[in-house]
């Protein structure tokens, strides 16, 4: 497994990186490289230019910005998993990071890289949806903000343009969240066969707001709107949770693969929505 040749640039400023992306065809942004490098080794991806953003200062911070937290483009899964700010305000994302691949991969792979790639078996996109994260994209054309709900288009396809870098994500504070999954080897490690990320806001004993996202279930992660609707306004009881879980795959084209039939995956989606909600509403 030997990658084909390519030009490599490692800019030390965002502007340089954006210029490099704008100035060449068939470029790829390299952050942690845990997906891109294996894909290049298998020659499934053959960029002519690789833009390594790891030497740009300031992209590897997790910061508290008042009503939201910010996770920079070069923040690794290991940091996302263990950072107190993420654990406090975006525990679904911390848990997703902690269950991604293995420690060695988590030491290199980045949260933003995983979101930008939007692989079917990624853990991060569902958490980003449930947490209502905002994606901050930059290019020589300027910057723009993309809501998580508008970001994940299809398998391996996000709303990013080829010349854009996902420079950071921001996650609003408030509510409680969690991420639960069944992995390929069983248990909660490895790629998800099905996973649920849930976020709820509870006030005065009733669920005032909720977002429920699933990943690994369809070709792209999605918000289970019907599940959230069933929950909001309820008392978060077992019945309300069961009702929410029953809508986990409404209107969704559920995937079949080596690890699950449509029926099993549909069932799992409900089970994991229920288990995740039981966690946050306990």
């Amino acid at each position: 497994m030997y990658p084909p040749n390519f030009d490599y640039v490692a800019p030390t400023s965002l502007d340089e990186a954006l210029a490099a992306l704008a100035g060449a065809e068939n470029t790829k942004v390299l952050s942690g490289g845990m997906s891109l490098i294996p894909l290049m080794k298998m020659r499934f991806v053959r960029p002519t230019t690789v833009v390594d953003i790891s030497r740009i200062p300031g992209l590897d911070d997790v910061t508290d910005d008042g009503d939201h937290i910010t996770i920079g483009a070069m923040v690794r899964h290991a940091t996302t998993a263990s950072h107190p700010l993420v654990q406090e305000h975006a525990s679904a994302l911390a848990e997703a990071a902690n269950g991604t691949a293995d420690l060695l991969v988590r030491n290199r792979g980045t949260t933003c890289g995983s979101l930008a790639l939007n692989a079917v078996a990624a853990d991060q996109p569902g958490a980003a949806l449930a947490l209502n994260a905002t994606m901050h994209a930059a290019s020589v054309r300027g910057t723009r903000e993309i809501a998580a709900a508008d970001f994940f288009l299809d398998a391996m396809t996000s709303a990013l343009a080829p010349d854009e870098i996902l420079t950071k994500i921001t996650i609003p504070k408030g509510g409680v969240s969690t991420y639960r999954k069944l992995g390929r080897r069983g248990g909660s490690s490895d790629y998800p066969i099905a996973a649920a990320a849930v976020w709820v806001d509870v006030s005065d004993g009733s669920v005032s707001d909720a977002r429920i996202a699933l990943n690994g279930v369809s070709s792209t992660p999605y918000l289970a709107v019907g599940s959230a609707e069933a929950l909001v306004g309820s008392d978060g009881s077992a019945d309300a949770i069961a009702s929410a879980a029953s809508h986990a795959t409404d209107g969704v084209n559920v995937l079949e693969d080596l690890y699950a039939t449509v029926a099993f995956r549909t069932h799992l989606a409900g089970v994991y929505v229920r288990r995740a909600l039981e966690d946050v509403l306990a």
């Binding site: 390929r184 080897r185 248990g187 490690s189 080596l258």
Partner: peptide
């Protein structure tokens, strides 16, 4: 080791030929 009807080996990578890991 899973083959499809066309004889493609669907589990040629360790991503889908799931060997036990230390936590298994």
């Amino acid at each position: 080791a899973i083959y499809d009807d066309m004889g493609n080996l669907l589990t040629s990578s360790m991503a889908n030929y799931t060997l036990p890991v230390s936590t298994s």
